[in-house]
Simulated scan of single mutants.
Amino acid sequence: PDKSNPDYWGGSIPWISAKSMYDDFISTSDLFITEEGLQAGSKIAKKDSILLLTRGSGLFNRIPVCYVVSDVAYNQDVKNIVLKQENVTSIKFLYYWLYGNKELLSSMLETTGIGAGKIDTKRFLNLSISLPSQKEQARYIHLMDLLFDKIELNRRINANLEAQAQALFRSWFVDFEPFRDGPFVDSELGKIPQGWEICCVEDLASYMVSGGTPKSLDSSYYNGDIRWFTTKELKDGFLFDSEKHISETALKNSAAKLLPENTVLMAIYASPTVGRLGILTAESTYNQAAVGIIAKKEIGYAFLYLLLLSERTNLNNLASGAAQQNLNVGIVKRYRVLVPTIDILNSFNEIVNPIFTTIKNNTAQIHNLSALRDTLLP
């Protein structure tokens, strides 16, 4: 639907594009259209069908295949797959087969004239699949359902826990609900509880530095044992294994920095990643499009993470650049924030740190189950 027409948007129908195809099982989106918007150009993918992204720059990084849990609308870059013969195979089996054959789908990828990728529909429809009996299909589906369901359950638990942590942060440090009966004083950020301070982000850190990228043409710099994250991997959560790894030689001969567990990474370059966060789970490096922040012990990484998350919109409004909206390390360092007294901070961390530990453990399980899934499916 025409994005400039307000009658088409803000309805109740989830609208799926490449940007919203990140969940394995999909039922909602960040964008919703109206019935008028649906009539103006979108189509509906029915529950228990498949969505496959066939066009766009996102195809160079992934081949998103999503199972439709409830009816959604979708755009022209996405194909909806439904079964012709239910007695031959199950839609779930086809979904898991496609999920397990991402390399095959990647081999079909063509480059368009504008630098995006596409999968030719005719070639896709002519793919050959060896079908086991329906009894065998049911066995495979049962095993994969167990894995996918546990991964999805952990994701939902984590989303609920993080929502709780964010709500607690807002209650204490934005709305001041537990402190409303105490004295308040004027500050550059408005009325604040007496005894609290306004300081810079760098005052909360024991160390703060941008990353670096080893020369890509030097083969000795890559495929090492050191994790090296790019900002596209920052998705507001704990970071386990990175897509690329660098060597000790690369670390010594580049601007990359090795920072410890619980370092908070923040993307500072280019929409849509600018402002996104990640938390290291082991010593790692990262590229120059991110800044790494080691929180002071008394501050804690959980408080720092929630603070930066709550200030994302305000920080991003400071980004500059004609073609791309960028922050820089200096802007982030000098950004002014409110910090409570140490006893209040300690009380907050006593509540929120166990929540983050549970989220971390659940994320580790997701990581391990996903690795098992991606080993078994092919």
Rank of each mutant, 00 (worst) to 15 (best):
I13P: 12
F303R: 01
C200M: 12
F303E: 00
S106N: 13
A45P: 00
T34G: 07
Q166F: 02
S107G: 06
S49P: 11
I246N: 15
G275F: 11
T89Q: 02
T375V: 08
Y301P: 03
A282G: 11
T313W: 04
L304R: 01
Q134K: 11
Y286W: 12
R276H: 09
L31W: 11
Y8F: 15
P132V: 04
G37M: 06
T111M: 11
N326W: 03
R155K: 15
D120N: 15
S70L: 02
D225L: 15
T34C: 08
I91H: 07
I198A: 07
S12N: 11
S254V: 11
T263Y: 01
P354Q: 09
Q365T: 07
T363R: 01
D218A: 10
N158E: 02
E152A: 13
V352A: 01
F348V: 04
S17M: 12
L94S: 04
I16G: 01
F32M: 06
L52M: 11
C200L: 08
P354L: 10
F148T: 13
G237R: 10
E86R: 13
I26P: 00
T54F: 08
A163W: 02
K191M: 10
N158Y: 01
N326T: 05
I50R: 07
I129E: 00
T112M: 02
K296V: 05
